[in-house]
């Protein structure tokens, strides 16, 4: 059982940072939506407050880690230009996708959208986390603020969902591969 270094890092980008960010943002949306209909404000203990703050910090950190590893680590491998004369495009995912009309759309729509829209998610959740932390005790007194951050959180979830979906599909049709091989199990067999 083995995996290439590039595949492993792309896996960390998508399945660790990206997927956990989507899950954390989903939890944020559910909690914000629930608070709209709560009759009584949920009062947390000081320990609960600090854990909630930790949740928000981790969510924001996951979002930024996902876009930064995507743009500066995996994406350069994805868009690498094959040297002249190379016919096997397995190590050049963008060119592999664009070499066929059947798969070109995954780049032209999928990657072109994903590479930009994904950045809106951490911008939005950073703002939401800031507002929730700053107005921790008084958010119910600002219902319009709560509505706005709920909209931004839903859009962040959607943007992260788009990025995650296209990331998974792109990696299915043209996986990022190459670099040293890491043997996980059964070395030498």
């Amino acid at each position: 059982m083995e995996i290439s270094l590039r595949a492993l890092i792309t896996l960390i980008h998508g399945m660790l940072f990206g997927a956990f960010f989507v899950m954390a943002t989903y939890g944020l949306v559910v909690e914000l939506y629930r608070s709209v209909y709560a009759e009584q404000p949920l009062k947390l203990t000081p320990q609960g407050d600090s854990r909630e703050r930790l949740y928000l910090i981790c969510m924001v950190g996951l979002g930024w880690a996902a876009v930064l590893t995507g743009a500066y680590v995996s994406y350069p491998w994805y868009r690498a230009v094959p040297p002249a004369g190379v016919t096997d495009l397995a190590l050049y995912p963008r060119f592999l996708l664009k070499s066929s009309a059947v798969t070109a759309g995954w780049h032209d729509l999928g990657m072109e959208w994903k590479e930009h829209v994904a950045w809106i998610a951490p911008i939005a959740v950073t703002m939401v986390a800031y507002v929730l932390t700053r107005y921790r005790l008084s958010i119910r007194e600002h219902p319009q603020v709560r509505t706005a951050i709920l909209v931004f959180a839903v859009v962040a979830l959607g943007a992260a969902g788009v990025a995650g979906f296209f990331g998974a599909m792109l990696n299915k049709y043209a996986p990022v591969n190459g670099g040293p091989t890491i043997h996980l199990r059964g070395k030498g067999q």
């Binding site: 930009h116 950045w119 809106i120 911008i123 939005a124 950073t126 703002m127 800031y130 507002v131 700053r134 107005y135 005790l137 008084s138 007194e141 600002h142 319009q144 603020v145 706005a148 951050i149 931004f152």
Partner: peptide
């Protein structure tokens, strides 16, 4: 009087800036 009254200005600044940042990206 609430123990600490927070005006909505800081939240509005964060919300509007996030909107501006998203539009600039596009």
């Amino acid at each position: 009087q609430p123990a600490e009254f927070l005006p909505n200005g800081p939240a509005a600044a964060a919300i509007l800036a996030a909107g501006i940042g998203s539009a600039l990206l596009g």
